[in-house]
């Protein structure tokens, strides 16, 4: 996709996943900072969506249904997991975020493959 931006996406979702696993093990609900990282990842994914719509004309042989299917599903996963973690006041709030974060890492990798 866009190398630097993709790297940032990987980094943020990796931080989110690791931190969420740690918080689950420490038996703590999702704090404001952790929810902040989730919101950041959500914003970055929305930025990715906007940028890829703008740059779509310059890409070659990218199936829009496949690519934007992944981007939109990732946005949905992060949004729903974040909302859930906000409402959930047990260690399983971060547990849900960890599951979402790990999924998004895989999805970013797929997006990157599809774009190339």
């Amino acid at each position: 996709m866009f190398t630097v931006f993709t790297f940032v996406l990987y980094a943020v979702s990796a931080v989110l996943s690791v931190w969420s696993i740690v918080e689950t093990i420490r038996n703590r609900p999702a704090g404001r900072l952790l929810l902040g990282v989730t919101a950041l990842l959500l914003l970055l994914l929305i930025a990715q969506l906007i940028v890829s719509i703008a740059a779509f004309g310059s890409s070659e042989n990218v199936d829009p249904l496949l690519f934007f299917g992944y981007v939109l599903t990732a946005i949905l996963v992060v949004g729903l997991a974040g909302f859930w973690a906000f409402a959930e006041l047990s260690r399983w709030g971060p547990g849900v975020l960890a599951a979402g974060g790990l999924t998004v890492i895989v999805m970013i990798e797929r997006m990157d493959q599809i774009w190339q």
């Binding site: 599903t73 949905l76 996963v77 859930w84 849900v96 599951a99 999924t103 999805m107």
Partner: peptide, 13 residues
């Protein structure tokens, strides 16, 4: 909760 979340992710993907 975590199990439900993983199932939801699988359902979605």
């Amino acid at each position: 909760r975590a199990l439900t979340a993983v199932y939801a992710i699988f359902a979605l993907s």
